[in-house]
């Protein structure tokens, strides 16, 4: 079941990558805030439409009106504790009904939205390396056979110079290298693991670029969060390869402060929510 889900996710990621590369390409040249705004507004509207057609609109309206009525009843009939408690119980009942009604649209939207967020994270979670900047690349080995340690080499390339490493962290079954970027563009790091070639994509440049932080392990969550590159098979000696790209630090991108792990996600959420709220009247959607 799990393998089937992973295979399916990989397939969906391939489609999402193809569509995302095309539809999100303007993010490469738009100013950061403008790009983030456009994406938030457009996706907010699209999701609102999806919600409209996947939810039971009249039931939502009915339940919401019921909740509002009972909220008003709390102020209108506050003389009676029993009546107020009755209203409060009906509010709770209404809220539960609303959650149940929302399960269908949630079910319908969870996959496309997750794929979308995966694509957006490629653009907004981290920025590409700049020429001359150092980066640590970590290759995690699978734990299928804890006693053996495969023979791993990283081939040198003109675009990425190995400045330190490899270092072995035996307790975590990881190997690290420090690299320095030498040329702009998308490059590939070529590893050889027990004679088998293994690749990882690297992005170098001063503009906005799709950045794949990690080539994921054979794990559903990992694959969803790092959709750009194909995952390593369960049988592979390599579990994953991760690069410590510098995180974005604006309030629309990456990580704005230590408190906010996903400021881009917060910005997108607020933007899409406001857009949905603004367009709900025009599109006649009951939320």
């Amino acid at each position: 079941m799990s393998d089937t889900a992973i295979h399916l996710t990989v397939l969906l990621n391939q489609i999402a990558n193809a569509v995302g590369r095309f539809l999100l390409a303007p993010l490469g040249f738009l100013p950061e805030v403008a790009g983030a705004l456009v994406v938030a507004v457009v996706t907010g509207i699209l999701m609102l439409i999806a919600f409209k057609y996947t939810s039971h609109q009249s039931a939502i309206k009915h339940v919401r009106n019921g909740i509002k009525a009972e909220l008003l009843a709390l102020s209108l009939f506050k003389d009676s504790v029993a009546v107020s408690l009755g209203s409060q119980w009906r509010i709770v009942q209404g809220a539960i009904k609303l959650i149940l009604i929302s399960l269908i649209p949630i079910g319908c939207m969870v996959i496309p939205v997750t794929l979308l967020l995966g694509q957006l994270s490629l653009w907004w979670q981290a920025r590409p390396l700049q020429i001359g900047e150092d980066v640590v690349v970590t290759l995690a080995l699978n734990e299928n056979d804890k006693t053996s340690w495969p023979n791993v080499t990283l081939q040198t390339a003109p675009a990425m110079e190995i400045t330190q490493g490899p270092f072995r962290i035996r307790s975590r079954r990881e190997m690290c290298w420090q690299l320095q970027a030498r040329a702009s563009g998308y490059h590939r790091l070529n590893f050889v693991v027990d004679g088998q070639p293994v690749e990882k994509e690297v992005a170098v440049g001063s503009d906005s670029m799709r950045v794949s932080i990690q080539r994921p392990a054979w794990d559903l969550a990992d694959i969803l969060m790092h959709p750009a590159e194909p995952p390593f098979q369960r049988s592979s000696s390599v579990k994953s390869i991760r690069m410590q790209y510098p995180l974005e630090t604006t309030w629309t991108h990456g990580r704005y402060s230590p408190l906010f792990f996903h400021s881009w996600l917060v910005f997108w959420f607020i933007g899409s929510t406001i857009a949905a709220f603004c367009f709900r009247g025009i599109l006649k959607v009951n939320l």
Binding site: I99, P105, M109, F269, T273, A276
Partner: peptide, 9 residues
Amino acid sequence: YVGPGAGFA
């Protein structure tokens, strides 16, 4: 998170 509609709900 699954979008403003379901999110609102």
